[in-house]
C-alpha cells in the first residue's frame, strides 16, 4: 500500500503496510535518524515528530494516519538563516542537553508549543513536556530554555 504526505516540506510516497509506525518509515525508508526509538511503547517521547503541527509519538503512530499530512522532523526545522532555531540555541545556552537522546523529541514538542501558544509560562511548559521523558537533566534547564526562547519570541512565530 502506498502513503503520501509531505516530509519536511517535500512530497513523499512510501509503499509499506499502513500499520507500519511512522518512526520506522522515517528511520528505515528515509534515513532520518533524529527521532529516536526510546521505548517503542508511546511512553518516552524520544520519537516525537510533528504531524500537521501536533506532536505525536511516531513509534506508535501508523503511517496510514499521516496520509496527506505535513510531517516535520528535527532535521527539517527552519532556522531562518541562523545556525540553530531559537529553542535549539536556548537548549545549549541554558545547559539543557546532557546525553541528548531525548532532545530531538523535546525540540519538536517545544517547537510546537512556541508556534501555537501565545502565553507561555512554567506550567504550560511543564504540561507540554508531560510526554517527553528526560532521564538526565531533571528538566529544569530544559524549562529555562523554553522560557527563554518564548521570551525571545515575543509571542507566536
Amino acid at each position: 500500500m502506498s502513503h503520501s504526505f509531505t516530509l519536511n516540506g517535500q512530497p513523499v510516497d512510501v509503499a509499506v503496510a499502513g500499520m507500519t509506525s511512522l518512526l520506522s518509515v522515517l528511520r528505515d525508508q528515509f534515513g532520518l535518524l533524529g527521532a529516536k526509538l526510546g521505548c517503542g511503547e508511546g511512553r518516552c517521547g524520544a520519537c516525537t515528530v510533528l504531524v500537521d503541527g501536533e506532536p505525536v509519538d511516531s513509534c506508535i503512530y501508523p503511517v496510514a494516519n499521516a496520509e496527506g499530512a505535513a510531517v516535520r522532523t528535527v532535521e527539517g526545522l527552519e532556522s531562518h538563516g541562523e545556525p540553530l532555531t531559537r529553542i535549539q540555541d536556548a537548549l545549549l545556552e541554558h545547559g539543557g542537553v546532557q546525553c541528548g537522546a531525548c532532545i530531538p523529541g523535546v525540540v519538536m514538542t517545544l517547537t510546537a508549543l512556541l508556534e501555537t501558544e501565545s502565553s507561555i509560562d512554567d506550567s504550560t511548559i511543564r504540561s507540554s513536556l508531560s510526554g517527553n521523558i528526560c532521564r538526565c537533566t531533571g528538566y529544569q534547564k530544559i524549562i529555562d530554555a523554553a522560557q527563554a526562547a518564548a521570551n525571545a519570541n515575543g509571542g507566536p512565530q
Binding site: L33, G34, K36, L84, L92, E93, G95, V107
Partner: peptide, 21 residues
C-alpha cells in the same frame, strides 16, 4: 566558565549518531 558543550549542536539538530543509530 559555563562553556557550551562541544557535541551540543549535533545533539539539538538530531545529527548525533548514537549507538542505537
Amino acid at each position: 566558565t559555563s562553556a557550551r558543550r562541544a557535541d551540543g549542536e549535533d545533539k539539538v539538530r538530531g545529527a548525533a549518531r548514537y549507538g542505537m543509530d
